[in-house]
């Protein structure tokens, strides 16, 4: 039985063990440097803490190119808010949005974006930049699809059925584009998916998918920006380049559940402002020798 004395023993045990905990580094639950950054205030006023957060979920392709890291301090300084950037495929970003966990999403799948707004989650859809999807593969082009129309290339790949095609398989915008191309080729996506070992679902981001295509010597659908960032690390090249059917439009959607809808709206204003648009248009030229994104504020894309 559990006696009084044993209880006392337990109390003793706590006293004895606490010094053991003390040997570890002191608990510091929050260390973000940005939190303590005070905003500029007129003299005589105590510095205001930058406490407000705006959470934005952005597609991995925009994140991996470093564009967001570049724009983040500009937005923070202009609006006096801490911008916290999460990256995820379009599907996951929208899932966060539906749960109210983020305030703004930046995604690239027009059909799903329109449903998202019709369902009441998003307030508006504003395209602000685009680039192109490309089909990449081994330089020797084992399936012989170079410079074909994308849908014809997909037909050739499915008929060949020996050279691997690596799909994102993660409900991302790129994955949605792939499904549109199968449909444009007159093929049923579900049939293709299960038609054999040549069709590989990576269920991963663009980078890991390109690495997998490189290792398996197969083809993949990629956004041009991520591919350029990877070009040095993988022995793959662009087999089929741009075309209107391959346009990849990024749009910003402030959420109806945003903690501060005005601040969420500021992100739309920021991304479509002439200064930011110019910056997006020139981003990447120094590092990759070519423009990664074409600004397109005000266009219906």
């Amino acid at each position: 039985m559990f006696s009084w004395l044993r209880f006392a023993g337990l109390a003793l045990c706590l006293a004895l063990l606490l010094p053991g905990c003390g040997e570890q580094p002191a608990p510091v639950p929050e260390t973000p440097a940005a939190d303590s950054t005070a905003l500029e205030q007129p003299e005589g006023f105590p510095p205001r803490e930058r406490v407000e957060r705006l959470l934005i979920a952005t597609t991995t392709s925009l994140y991996d190119t470093g564009l967001w890291a570049y724009m983040e301090p500009m937005f923070e300084d202009q609006y006096g808010v801490e911008l916290d950037i999460l990256y995820a495929g379009t599907g996951k970003a929208m899932e966060w949005g539906m749960r109210g966990d983020v305030d703004v999403v930046v995604v690239h799948d027009r059909a799903r974006e329109e449903t998202f707004i019709a369902d009441g989650y998003g307030l508006s859809r504003t395209p602000f930049a685009y680039n192109f999807f490309v089909i990449v593969g081994p330089p020797e082009d084992p399936a012989g699809i170079r410079d074909m129309e994308p849908q014809d290339a997909f037909i050739a790949l499915s008929q060949n059925a020996t050279i691997p095609f690596i799909s994102r398989g993660d409900e991302s915008g790129t994955h949605a584009q792939e499904q549109r191309l199968w449909a444009a080729a007159g093929l049923d996506y579900e049939t293709i998916r299960t038609s054999g070992d040549w069709y590989v679902e990576a269920a991963a981001g663009m980078g890991p998918t390109l690495n997998m295509a490189n290792e398996m010597r197969g083809y993949a659908l990629a956004d041009i920006a991520t591919f350029l960032a990877y070009q040095g690390d993988v022995d793959l090249e662009i087999i089929i380049g741009s075309g209107d059917a391959m346009r990849n439009v990024y749009a910003v959607i402030p959420l109806s559940t945003a903690r501060n809808t005005d601040m969420a709206q500021n992100m739309v204003t920021f991304l479509t402002s002439p200064e930011t648009q110019e910056l997006i248009g020139s981003y990447g030229v120094v590092e990759w020798g070519q423009q990664l994104f074409t600004p397109c504020a005000g266009q219906d894309l």
């Binding site: 004395l5 023993g9 003793l12 004895l16």
Partner: peptide, 10 residues
């Protein structure tokens, strides 16, 4: 006793 035993065990 129980208390002392508990203490020694700890």
């Amino acid at each position: 006793g129980s208390l002392q035993t508990g203490g020694v065990v700890l």
